[in-house]
Nucleic acid binder design. Structure first.
Lengths: 218, 218
DNA sequence: TAAAACTGACTGACTAGTCAATCTTGAAGG
DNA sequence: CCTTCAAGATTGACTAGTCAGTCAGTTTTA
């Protein structure tokens, strides 16, 4: 196994060896092509052509096509969960503070999604290879779990009514967020909708309003 | 083109010729396999083996693999939009009447999704072949448009605040509904969640509560 | 008895993964 | 500062397997 477990370059910033750079290059090309054209429609020969290297080089860096797919999911998952974990609520506060905090979290998530759109596309819509499908599902369960903890905490702090079914609410919330991201970044976009033109911040404001107050809301 | 445009069997119910039956059989097998294993992972040889016919027979009924995929989307789209169109609001009413109406519509949609789970899976998560991806997107835009009309009508009748951005709300709502269906029927399901065990009616009740009142709601 | 339905072996295109040969790099030794 | 040389990195033609689609011939149907 040459797994190279995502070494956080300790302090010597002259890191990023030539080897790592090529690896990153191949990963970047692969994630873009997987998202744009799908896993099966992406040939290794496409990836190496884009990178300007020979077919054999790919297999110097990755064991197989499946391996690079799983690597993409794994590294994206780590970073996404870090963003969500930041939203974990530690202090009680007013409703408007809670709404603001939620909006901040959503903005961060949307920003992450925007900066990692190909990963998000793969995560939310890609499920061609069985093992990648499974890895995506696990990541999305983690995501739901992270939101469940956030809601639970907010409930403990008396900021949300205790009557609600936690898991149900988390599932509804994550459904909403995933759906919004999917529409925002990679359609299907209604021609008259200006959804795609919103910034992460604006989208977060709209979404949080719906999240807390629903269609009847303020 | 032998497109056979979904003839609504006029009145002679002795319809469903042998030919149509075989066609339906192949369609049913294909949609199930496409949803379960993906489009690319489904071989024509799998489909015909399931149906107990020879490879050549498939090509007697369908021009190509792509053709059967598009046919699946097309016929499902028609039926889905019919269900949504029934929710079009003609009469004004109280808030609770509106909520009830919305809940009824959601129940119908969830029921349809349940009865056509393979089609829904293909619609919501399938995008391996470019033309099928496009057809799915178009269908989902139609769906959003149908909901937009419903919301617009409810706003005209004074049942929803006029302040909201119509397209935005429709996009948020459809995101929520699509996400809920995806989680309900084909995961990713959090192990502790009982989402998957809900009936269409119960799910509609939960969803509509979130739809109108949000996390802070009643 | 002719059209419709069906058969299944076959083809041709495609593509993940291999491998023996070659080039590059950088450190050790002179 | 130069040479050596082994590990690291790269090459691209090749293999082996897969699979959509074909077609000449056979059986069923009405």
């Amino acid at each position: 196994m040459k797994e190279c477990v995502f070494v956080i370059t300790n302090d010597n910033d002259k890191s990023a060896s030539k080897r790592d750079l090529r690896r990153e290059q191949l990963l970047a090309i692969a994630v873009e092509r997987f998202a744009k054209h799908g896993y099966h429609n992406t040939k290794i020969s496409d990836i190496v052509a884009d990178a300007g290297v020979a077919q054999g080089t790919f297999y110097w860096y990755f064991k197989s096509k499946e391996a690079i797919g799983l690597e993409i999911i794994r590294s994206g998952r780590e970073r996404l969960l870090q963003v969500i974990a930041k939203g974990y609520r530690s202090q009680s506060g007013s409703v408007s503070e809670m709404v603001e905090g939620s909006q901040r979290l959503l903005k961060d998530i949307f920003q992450f999604a925007d900066e990692n759109r190909y990963f998000m596309e793969l995560l939310l819509t890609g499920g061609e290879d069985e093992s990648i499908r499974r890895a995506s599902k696990e990541t999305r369960i983690d995501m739901e779990e992270a939101f469940r903890r956030n809601i639970e905490r907010a409930t403990e702090l008396g900021m949300l009514p205790g009557s609600m079914n936690l898991h149900m609410r988390a599932a509804l919330l994550v459904s909403l967020i995933e759906g919004v991201i999917a529409r925002w970044l990679f359609g299907p976009i209604h021609p008259n909708s200006d959804l795609a033109r919103l910034t992460a911040e604006e989208l977060a404001a709209e979404t949080v309003r719906f999240e807390f107050f629903g269609l009847l809301g303020i």
